[in-house]
Amino acid sequence: MDKFLEFKNVTYFYQTKTSEIHALDKLTFAVDEFQFASLVGPSGCGKTTVLSLTAGLLEASEGEILLDQKPITKNDPRIGYMFQRDHLFEWRSIWQNITLGLELQHKNKDQQKLSLAENLLKKYDLYGFKNKKPHELSGGMRQRVALIRTLVLEPALLLLDEPFSALDFQTRLKVCDDVYDIIKSEKKTALLVTHDISEAISMSDRIIILTKRPAHTRTIIDLNLEGNTPLEKREANDFGKHFEMIWRNLSSEETIIKSP
């Protein structure tokens, strides 16, 4: 399979008033097309920095980031970003939230894009809520709306920055299944940042483990667990084996959630 997203020796320094922070050091990894990849590593190791660099919100100090063999540009339209919180705008209806990106890119008259938005709402059981305000929806529904808002722009790569961290455990498992299903059925490549090893194993085809700051790749693990959904994959025979392996890899690092 072709490398779709490629980090080649990427180094990044944050500038602050008092010092220069070395966040990433010659970081190298790749994600194949249609793969679901996860980035795990200790708190503050620079996982979100990797996503910001990929989205073109930050510029690498050194190295190269390629998407489909072309360099990433500032606010690259090929990339969609989903944040820790859903960040729905409370004064806009669900429909207005979903079409926000189209509006910003002056594509809100494009019938093809609008019917895609409508179809996604129907497909993921949110059509009946299109005229509601975000506060009328549950946490899980709000995350689905946030994902559809990103998908409407038809990005080739989806960046997910701990999108389930604000949810309670039960909702989290359900939303993981929903998001995984949506991403796989819409045939998207995804890069997830998470602190939760179980979540990473149950959702990913590939896990990239980072070291503590300045982060570089500690190891890359390719997975092929039985099961069609993250919930089913949690029951797979090899789940525990992978969990132990990743846990051992991270044992010298800090603050990793070892959830069941």
Binding site: A55, L57, N75, P77, I79, G80, Y81, F83, H87, L100, G101, L104, Q105, L153
Partner: peptide, 8 residues
């Protein structure tokens, strides 16, 4: 940041 990621 979300707005910027949607090229606002």
């Amino acid at each position: 940041l979300l707005m910027k990621s949607m090229r606002a």
